[in-house]
Design a binder for these strands. Sequence first.
DNA 1: GGCGTGCGTTAGCCTCGGCTAAAGCGCTTC
DNA 2: GAAGCGCTTTAGCCGAGGCTAACGCACGCC
Lengths: 228, 228
Amino acid sequence: MSPLTRSRQDYLKALYALAPAGEAVPTSRLAARLGVSAPSVTNMLGRLAEERLVSHAPRAGARLTPLGRRAALGMVRRHRILETFLVKVLGLDWTEVHDDAEVLEHHISDRALAAIDRLMGHPDEDPHGHLIPDAKGRLARRALTPLAALPRGARATVREIRDADGRRMARWKEVGLVPGAEVRVREVRALDDVFELEVAGRRVVTGSEGLDGVLVQPARVESHGARS
Amino acid sequence: MSPLTRSRQDYLKALYALAPAGEAVPTSRLAARLGVSAPSVTNMLGRLAEERLVSHAPRAGARLTPLGRRAALGMVRRHRILETFLVKVLGLDWTEVHDDAEVLEHHISDRALAAIDRLMGHPDEDPHGHLIPDAKGRLARRALTPLAALPRGARATVREIRDADGRRMARWKEVGLVPGAEVRVREVRALDDVFELEVAGRRVVTGSEGLDGVLVQPARVESHGARS
DNA sequence: GGCGTGCGTTAGCCTCGGCTAAAGCGCTTC
DNA sequence: GAAGCGCTTTAGCCGAGGCTAACGCACGCC
């Protein structure tokens, strides 16, 4: 059993990202995600299967075993703790820290990671609003809605910004679409693909492109005879 | 020119550590230092020579070129900033942070390193008392004396603790031999290899083994008619 | 001045994690 | 049922950075 090299860790992470619930993922999807050729994926899946980290039925894609899933969640934890650290402690911009975290997650020791986590008071969310798995790899579940799926008039609170193009994230940040922000959908013009939002009191007009990277928690419906 | 991989960086660092003034270093010394076979060293020196980072006359050892020296000092800077960070910010023990720094120095981005440096207020010494090269790779010079070389009666201030066996460093820390500590040599029994010291008021008896890892700045001689 | 010895180099091989080219499986379509 | 097509796998290769075994240079010793 070779130790989990950087490359192996990346495969496990990708597999988790593409199929968090454990579905089978086609070779080609992994290849595209990792920026690697399909034969390289087949090859690596073979090794990972030997090590019981994934199961790989020929021509039927790959899925994480419980062991692989634990490893993947460990990487997610490391990544999110590091992103939080880079933003909260080092003062870097949350639209730009992804790449640094991507490298460091493979190399920081458990001891140093624990110290960072302690320093920050064991945060449970990273700067993008993603939940941080606990040390045992448990991740709370929550149901969020893509902002673009909200109907006209809906109110909601922004909860997560999915890692995306840095420039797009910077733009979102600029207009106030950050975790915690309150949003109201003023108008949806589906045919024109135009959303008119009110974010923290300001009017924002945008197309839907990429907007499914903004996940929100809809406010409880303000029913007429508001009972509560 | 391939980018400076981890392995290359380690060779340059080792070369600098073994010959800070730019002397030639024999293949075997490098091999021992890096924990690698001699042929591997010859091989790598060939590559580094092609890249103008070292000069390598066959059978006459290797030395850093100015380019290689700059790269090596860059690594020293990274290492020392990271050690300082691990101790000062994360609260880890300075006898144990070497290995973490050793890994991270190869992987942290310039941007994150700069942020760490800024956070700490641009320290000029690491927790072992080593000077940190500036961003241009300049390193102040200072002349220090091994503690074991002091004569009976001498007073001095501890300035640097060279990276050594973690247990030994822990012991030194325990007895108070840390950068900044004041020491007086109460007795030297050369034949028995015994040093009797007074460190921060406490009496410490030790052999010389490894004690050259403790570097001190001797106090100005307290001459009889103390002038000043 | 010849010879042994030790260090350095050469030769050849390995693993990891990539690659391209080519082959093959299986699904769809006629 | 044959052909075509797309995705996956196999085959064979590469470079980085290791390794061992074997060779060779140079120096010290007699």
